[in-house]
């Protein structure tokens, strides 16, 4: 039985999504993408400085990669929608990661604005991938708004703390049919494996790979971890403890 990963009806070849930010150079970034075997890669839309030499990001992205623009910088739904439309006009495709952050201290997403943006962009035919704080009611609202997936944070951006929101993610996996893609906060390959063992459909990692001493090797490590976690989930873990009971205090009365 093949393990197919689909988002919005499209086959995606890898359950490891990689961010392109914070790499030491575009060359390292490209090698990391190759080592990660990621098919979906995120990028940000930024203003171009007319006076300086700007390298073209897209020139360093391997062929066959799906670009997913991140609306980072948006402080409300309106700004996120604008970034999405600009990205599309740039020719960056229909995949859009909605990231609306109004809190600059902790970089936590604004769920309400994210939902608003999701509804508008889904209606315009974007493949909406919303980054949000893992609340089940908001997940349902995102689904109803037309989101193609759910991207709950594991921990605040850049903290590398791992699955702080583990229990909430488990609930999302249990209750929602949309693919749950854990995004943000995953600091080590073991975190990624753990997320996959819980039943997440995929993970998105950026900081942990880009800021590693050897980003290319770390990208490969994450790829292996994601595969291992996914296999474990499909295999169905065995029971953890075998309790042998010498006495039957609760059902002894049955004889």
């Amino acid at each position: 039985m093949t393990d197919q990963f689909k988002i919005a009806g499209r086959n995606v070849k890898s359950r490891f999504l990689l961010g392109t930010g914070k790499f030491p150079s575009n060359a390292v970034m490209r090698s990391a993408i190759v080592a990660s075997r990621a098919q979906i890669v995120t990028a940000a839309l930024r203003r171009v400085d007319l006076d300086s030499e700007e390298e073209n990001l897209l020139a360093h992205i391997p062929e066959g990669t799906i670009m997913m623009t991140n609306t980072s910088g948006a402080r409300d739904a309106g700004e996120a929608v604008r970034i999405a439309r600009l990205s599309r006009a740039l020719g960056a495709g229909d995949w859009i990661k909605i990231e609306v952050i109004a809190d600059n201290k902790h970089l936590l997403p604004d769920n309400a604005e994210t939902i608003k943006a999701a509804a508008i962009l889904a209606a315009e035919g974007f493949i909406v991938m919303p980054y949000f704080n893992p609340d089940l009611a908001d997940a349902r609202r995102l689904r109803d708004a037309g989101a193609a997936s759910l991207m709950p944070l594991g921990a605040p951006i850049g903290t590398n703390k791992g699955l702080c929101t583990k229990e909430l993610i488990k609930i999302l996996v249990a209750e929602m049919d949309l693919p749950v893609i854990v995004d943000a906060g995953l600091g080590r390959p073991s975190h990624a494996a753990e997320a996959m063992e819980l039943g997440a459909a995929a993970v998105l990692v950026n900081t942990a790979v880009a800021s590693a001493r050897d980003p290319v090797r770390m990208a490969g490590a994450f790829a292996l971890a994601v595969e291992a976690g996914r296999s474990a989930w499909l295999a169905g873990p065995g029971s953890v403890s075998e309790t042998a009971r010498a006495s039957s205090p609760l059902t002894g009365f049955l004889g």
Partner: peptide
Amino acid sequence: LEIFTLFGGG
């Protein structure tokens, strides 16, 4: 005038 391009980002 605003001019945008894709940069590395998460």
